[in-house]
Design a protein around this nucleic acid. Sequence first.
DNA 1: CTGAAAGCGCTTACAG
DNA 2: CTGAAAGCGCTTACAG
Lengths: 344, 344
Amino acid sequence: MSAKIKDVARVAGVSVTSVSRVINGGEHISAKLEKKVRRAIEELNYSPSLIAKSLKRNKTNLIGVIIPDITSNFQASILSYIEDTAGKKGYNLLISNIVEDTDKVVKYLNIYQEMRVDGIILMHGKMNEDIRTFLERTTIPVVTQADLGIPLTSVHIDDYQGAYEATSYLVNNGHRRIAMITGDLRDISAGKHRLEGFLAACQHYQIEVDSSMIKYGDYKINTGYRLMNELLDEGSPVQAVFAASDEMAVGAINCLHDRGLSVPGDVSVIGFDGSQIADIIKPALTTIRQPIKQMGQVTVELLLDLIESVNDTIDAGKFKRVVLPHHLHVGSSCRKSDSDRERN
Amino acid sequence: MSAKIKDVARVAGVSVTSVSRVINGGEHISAKLEKKVRRAIEELNYSPSLIAKSLKRNKTNLIGVIIPDITSNFQASILSYIEDTAGKKGYNLLISNIVEDTDKVVKYLNIYQEMRVDGIILMHGKMNEDIRTFLERTTIPVVTQADLGIPLTSVHIDDYQGAYEATSYLVNNGHRRIAMITGDLRDISAGKHRLEGFLAACQHYQIEVDSSMIKYGDYKINTGYRLMNELLDEGSPVQAVFAASDEMAVGAINCLHDRGLSVPGDVSVIGFDGSQIADIIKPALTTIRQPIKQMGQVTVELLLDLIESVNDTIDAGKFKRVVLPHHLHVGSSCRKSDSDRERN
DNA sequence: CTGAAAGCGCTTACAG
DNA sequence: CTGAAAGCGCTTACAG
């Protein structure tokens, strides 16, 4: 139905080789020939098939992205920078929203493989055997935004350290009964490291933390609300809560408000991520800010490096771990004590 | 480097035709042959090329989606339902985030055309000549979530009516000085219709509205904040504000708070969309709720109908306009008067 | 039930 | 500077 390169060649009265050359540029061609071809393209409203081109060139300019939850503002923001950076380099994004369901990952990875994407970006932090097997076997360049315990190029912050700092901040402002609303146990990267950072800080400051003070969530607002409720119902009174995501922190704050407790008057709340939601909520959320823009950009840049060096035997098997800086952003959701002698 | 169908055929000792048949199913093949092929596939870790398959079958199972701003929770939510519905039907999404920059649209539409996507979803509401020309020429099925003034299948709510209801709600609760923070003038769908609905309601209730009471924005939080500031600085005191998006409403509320004004004590604020942000903000936002899940699902269903009927001459040229129901969701961001005799 | 061969729409050595 | 022809990795009539 639509015109092919052959049709253009016929109408222009030249060979398909020449048509291909004027479209792709590079080689020298006479102005006269070019004009004829351009006219024919215009006349036929010709649009070259990237599918045929991809098959021939063995390159699709496609990047597959696995994202845990696109409705998370933090993740959507990273994705927007990934899209922007990739788009400027001529790459398009194939996106799979796994809704935190790890079982879907392998299914999509296989589709990416069959689509012959040039590279894959993994934003999730959970693992299973199928994923591991796929990643070990594939020859497609991969960059992950988590520490999956596999020799893979990755870019992320130091989650352990971030959690340690968040907890220390609470301690240094006079809190002793600190609860944590953490991530999924199966999240072996951010989730695991943030919990470990919390526990390490508690140990350092000789703060007792029993299991009733730790609730496992999934980074979502509603979960933060529900777990805060459990915390208030079950345990001894808490002075502060460290949530492993801003969204759970917001859920916790809303729960506290609904139960007539003031933040930070009665309970301090600190979040993690530094997404937009932290700024719009009242009180403004104190949180660990991740460098969102940089994470998106660096991820794509590293992936493109891998894609372009895929034939260099020199770089074969090399991978990088990039740890980006985070920082504590102080809002108004934590009570401040005057005696914070040990800040930072 | 990786195995082709030819390799599988060689290892299995059969023809490529047979390999293709066991992979795609459908035709009858002997159990013995199938076993040989399966074993070879396993042995070679063979992954069929969807690129080659697409070229041959003239079908990519790709859907291109143009999204104005993926960091908007409302849009991201719709996208997640689009992704889910499409994924279940075996389609993958190619996503382009245009960051509200209409000039990017045609660029991406052309890429979609070259990628031979099976269908296109348009989430934006702005138009220009290039977009119009493309849409009139293309043979690719398109579904839009706006009324672009072109014979195209579309699914959206009645924005005019929604805005009319929102404004009426404010009036019926005793407000007379009502400002509107609306969308971009170039948004000829939602933006235009919501403004018209507002103006019509004002006229109906004989409410005077001068141009200083209307501010043009872009649906984002920061813009809502800035425009609310302008409203307070310039004009006579407002009693209520109708924002054309929840995000701008939240920005307006934060601005009011920062200036020491109470919502809804001093000023009522009503939003539009019914995204998650409406629920998490304090006070809970009164807003016009759009059926987000349904919008995503119906959009994909209609697009798949178009894709599958593309060869039916009977359906050629037919298009549908689907108008989905919205409803007023009452939160706590609007002052309620006892004398609301005319409540809808 | 199975296979040889043409063809999908391009690109790219190779030759002139 | 230009073109004929092979080939990218599949699918699918057609024949047996």
